[in-house]
């Protein structure tokens, strides 16, 4: 700032920064709580007063991935000694891991996590792929009624999921797509496609037309120019769009709740269904939540410079 700072301005600045730090701590506290609960011994998760500092353990993750039953009597010491460390932790909790022969029986969590991954990755590839082509079309060619078409595309994104889900559920039931990966992938592509078109159009508009025109003069076909000139230029934009689409599909709940129940169920409807009756085991739920949120947290850092664009469909950028 050109103007000389008065001492009251400096003081105000310091207060503002202190307030920001306090606000950040408040905003992060819930995230800290879920992350720390994932590493707590069972009894500390529901202690009064709440436990902030403790010796972390990974037992909740062992419980998350295994099927277990309560033990009627204490474990045979020889069996205990022979067991690997993670199985000992389960014995310590008065439970034993279910096995078929020697193989540990896995819980449903890894399956649901994989379903989330399959559906999110495939739907992202399709939505971003189609979106990139379409965005290029809108960015470079004259199209009659372009504004109306773009509004139509965006408006599909705004449809409430439950509203779309009712007819889709009936149609899927007719063609047997209920509780299938493909069914969910189609819905997520339809949902993310409009976003991908709008965001990619913003990125495409920024690539100077002259680049391709020079290539056309050099004897490239339009398709070659698109693949060899435009796509590499748009790589950052494509990556950012893909991460946004992935996060949306990864987090989606309503469609997954309605369209899947067993085979293709993804993590978001599965994790809350684990609460069940009686006293929930919060450490295991927290462990599942922690693993589920981790990729999104990492992606948020990778995306940080594109977040503004992403949340405004490419309309506003820094």
């Amino acid at each position: 700032m050109a103007a000389v700072r008065t001492s009251s301005e400096v003081a105000f600045n310091r207060i503002a920064i202190a307030a920001v730090l306090i606000a950040t701590l408040i905003f992060l506290a819930p995230i800290y709580w879920i992350a720390s609960t994932a590493f707590k011994p069972k009894e500390l998760a529901v202690s009064v007063p709440p436990t902030v500092l403790f010796e972390p353990e990974v037992t909740p993750f062992v419980r998350l991935f295994t099927k277990r039953v309560q033990m009627q009597k204490p474990v045979d010491p020889q069996v205990y000694d022979a067991a690997p460390w993670w199985e000992k932790r389960i014995y310590d909790g008065g439970e034993r891991v279910l096995k078929v022969g020697k193989d540990v029986q896995l819980s449903q969590y890894p399956d649901r996590f994989m379903n989330s991954l399959i559906v999110a990755v495939i739907s992202t590839v399709l939505a971003v792929g189609m979106g990139t082509f379409t965005a290029y079309g809108f960015s470079r060619f004259k199209i009659a009624g372009e504004a109306d078409l773009l509004f139509f595309i965006l408006s599909t994104r705004m449809l409430p999921p439950v509203v779309v889900a009712i007819p889709m559920f009936l149609m899927y039931r007719m063609v047997g797509l209920n509780d299938s990966h493909i069914g969910l992938i189609i819905l997520y592509v339809a949902f993310n496609l409009s976003f991908s078109v709008w965001l990619m159009k913003g990125f495409m508009d920024e690539i100077p037309k002259e680049y391709e025109e020079a290539a056309l003069v050099d004897g490239y076909t339009r398709m070659q120019a698109f693949f060899k000139i435009v796509l590499p230029e748009a790589a950052t934009g494509i990556a950012a769009t893909a991460v946004f689409c992935f996060i949306t599909a990864w987090n989606e709940y309503a469609f997954a709740l309605i369209m899947t129940n067993r085979r293709a169920q993804t993590a978001p409807p599965f994790i809350p269904s684990q609460i069940g009756s009686g006293l929930p085991d919060w450490t295991t739920i927290a462990a599942g939540t922690f693993l589920f949120l981790l990729p999104v947290a990492i992606f948020t850092f990778l995306l940080r410079n594109h977040l503004l664009r992403g949340v405004t469909f490419g309309a506003i950028r820094k």
Partner: peptide
């Protein structure tokens, strides 16, 4: 700090609802 503050909105609303129960 700005990025840390943006974390909540990137999360799954269903899972956020669940852990706020706790």
């Amino acid at each position: 700090i700005t990025t840390l503050l943006l974390l909540p909105m990137m999360m799954s609303a269903a899972v956020v609802g669940l852990f706020w129960q706790l």
